[in-house]
Amino acid sequence: MIDIETLRGIALSLPQATEGPHADKTGFRIGKKLFATVNIKESRATVKLSPANQDIFCTFDSTVIYPVPNKWGKQGWTHVNLQAVHKEMLTEILKVAYCEVAPKRLAELVVFE
C-alpha cells in the first residue's frame, strides 16, 4: 500500500511541482496545471494522462488503474488504487502525468526508468 507521504515525495520530486488543496482533496500541480490529486479516504490517486497513455496503463490491471467513470475519464483522468499499486508503477504514472501538463523544458528533465 502506498501512503500519502510516499505519493507526496514522488510528486514533489518532479521539477517545480507544488502541493495544494483541490476541492476536498490534495492536488499536485506544475504552475497552475493539475497533474494529480489524492483522495486519502478512498486510498486513491487520480492522474491526468493522455488518452493513449491511459489506454496503455489501464491494460495492466483494472483493479489497480482505471479511467474515471465519467466525462473526465474520457479526457484522460485516471484513478490509481493506492492499496494495490507498486511504488515503481506509481512513480512512472506520476512522471507521465506530470509530463502531460508540464512545459516542455521541464518535462525534458524527467528521467524514466
Results as ranks from 00 to 15, higher is better:
Ile56Ser: 12
Lys71Asp: 14
Ala107Asp: 08
Ser50Met: 04
Ala52Lys: 11
Pro51Lys: 09
Gly20Met: 08
Ala52Phe: 09
Cys58Gly: 12
Leu109Phe: 07
Asp3Met: 00
Met89Lys: 13
Phe35Tyr: 06
Asn39Pro: 06
Ser62Leu: 10
Asn81Thr: 02
Phe35Ser: 06
Ile56Val: 14
Arg8Tyr: 08
Asp61Ser: 04
Phe28Tyr: 15
Ser13Thr: 08
Asn81Val: 03
Thr59Gly: 14
Gln75Tyr: 05
Trp72Ser: 07
Met1Tyr: 01
Ala107Leu: 02
Leu14Asp: 09
Tyr66Ser: 10
Asp61Tyr: 03
Ile56Thr: 14
Val96Gly: 15
Leu106Val: 01
Gly76Ile: 01
Tyr98Leu: 13
Lys25His: 13
Pro21Ile: 03
Asn39Glu: 11
Leu94Lys: 09
His79Val: 03
Ser13Gly: 08
Ala36Ser: 10
His86Leu: 12
Glu5Cys: 04
Phe60Gln: 02
His22Arg: 06
Gly20Phe: 01
Ala102Tyr: 13
Phe35Ile: 04
Ser13Glu: 03
Leu90Gly: 01
Lys87Met: 07
Pro15Leu: 15
Tyr98Thr: 13
Pro51Tyr: 12
Val110Pro: 11
Phe60Ser: 07
Ser50Glu: 04
Ile4Thr: 11
Asp3Leu: 07
Met1Phe: 07
Glu5Lys: 12
Pro103Glu: 03
Val101Cys: 13
Val101Phe: 12
Ile10Thr: 01
Lys32Gly: 13
Lys87Ala: 01
Val47Trp: 05
Lys41Glu: 11
Trp77Arg: 00
Pro69His: 00
